[in-house]
């Protein structure tokens, strides 16, 4: 009974004295709690937020003394701070987990990038090595080409050398040929000079058989019956001899004693015939001429020497003295 009265007294005092301040504390804390629950931290430390809400709601209850209310307000204030701090902590812990996974992500990216760089480096090295191989191949090909070119030029040089040798040999051969030709020409011109000398020197001699002109062996082709071309071109002396002296013309062929007598007889006859034919061609009447081969029977020199034999090889053109035949 006493307690109830006392309590009523306290309540009455408290209600009268503290009612406006009570509301102020509660209002302020309720507002702060609402901010926490409506803000970015709303989802964190939910049980602590609930506890703060409960304590703050407790401020509304009736029958608290002024001191009790003040105390409860303090506790409520602290409880709200605890909720706030715990929410921040939980948010930071969540953030830390996020940052950890971000860290892993960064490392992953880094390793991916590193792998990419390594791949690029490998690719670069691969290209480089391919280029080096290509370069080496090109250098090898160039060296090969140079070698081949050198061989070719060697071969060319060798060929040129051979050609030069051949040309030199050819030149030598031609020189020899030319020398021979020159020699031959010299010999020929010597022979021609000798021939002309003999032709120029042709003279008639008066013998008991008549006027005799002797054509030497040199005027004939060797071993043949034909006269040499030069002889035919220089018959002036012979012609003027037969034209300026009248009388029968007796042409006699003679040889040396080499070879068979029959061959010599035949050769001497043919040489005599040749001369007769030449004279006829030059306009001498055929009935004026007699051609006789005497062979080796009538030498005029010694047949044991070459010069003697040469003198014996001859054709004599004899213009018979018309008086000789008449006088016995």
């Amino acid at each position: 009974m006493t307690r109830v009265i006392t309590a009523l007294m306290i309540f009455g005092l408290a209600a009268c004295g503290s009612a406006p301040r009570k509301d102020l504390d509660a209002e302020r804390l309720t507002l702060q709690l609402a901010e926490l629950r409506g803000g970015e931290l709303s989802g964190y430390a939910p049980e602590k937020q609930a506890r703060a809400a409960q304590v703050i709601a407790g401020l509304e209850q009736q029958g608290l003394s002024d001191q009790q209310h003040q105390h409860q307000s303090y506790i409520a204030q602290r409880t709200l701070e605890i909720a706030q701090t715990a929410a921040e902590r939980e948010r930071d812990e969540a953030l830390a987990i996020e940052l950890e996974s971000e860290h892993k992500e960064i490392l992953l990216q880094a390793s991916l990038r590193e792998a990419e760089l390594a791949r690029q480096e490998t690719e670069r090295l691969r290209l480089q090595s391919a280029a080096a191989i290509e370069e080496a191949e090109r250098a090898r090909a160039e060296a090969q080409a140079a070698l081949e070119a050198r061989d070719a030029s060697d071969r060319q040089a060798q060929m040129a050398q051979q050609e030069a040798d051949q040309a030199r040999r050819l030149a030598q051969a031609r020189e020899r040929e030319a020398a021979l030709a020159r020699q031959e020409a010299e010999l020929a011109s010597l022979a021609a000079a000798e021939l002309r000398k003999q032709l120029d020197a042709l003279q008639s001699q008066r013998t008991d058989r008549g006027l005799v002109m002797t054509l030497g062996d040199i005027l004939f082709e060797t071993g043949e019956a034909d006269l040499k071309t030069e002889t035919l071109d220089n018959l002036d002396k012979v012609l003027s001899f037969v034209q300026s002296n009248p009388g029968h013309i007796r042409v006699e062929g003679h040889t040396d004693d080499r070879g068979s007598a029959a061959f010599n007889l035949q050769l001497s006859q043919r040489r005599a015939d040749t001369v007769r034919r030449v004279l006829e061609q030059q306009g001498i009447a055929a009935e004026r001429i007699t051609a006789i081969g005497q062979g080796e029977a009538r030498p005029i020199a010694d047949n044991s020497s070459e010069s003697g034999r040469q003198q014996n090889r001859r054709v004599e053109i004899i213009i018979e003295d018309p008086m000789a035949g008449e006088s016995p």
Partner: peptide, 26 residues
């Protein structure tokens, strides 16, 4: 009771400071 709740708040603040420091470091 007030002292106890201050201790509780102190513990909470310390833990929050640790978490904050961890976040800053990370």
């Amino acid at each position: 009771e007030q002292a106890n709740i201050n201790i509780e708040l102190a513990e909470e603040r310390a833990a929050a400071a640790d978490a904050r420091a961890t976040v800053t470091e990370l």
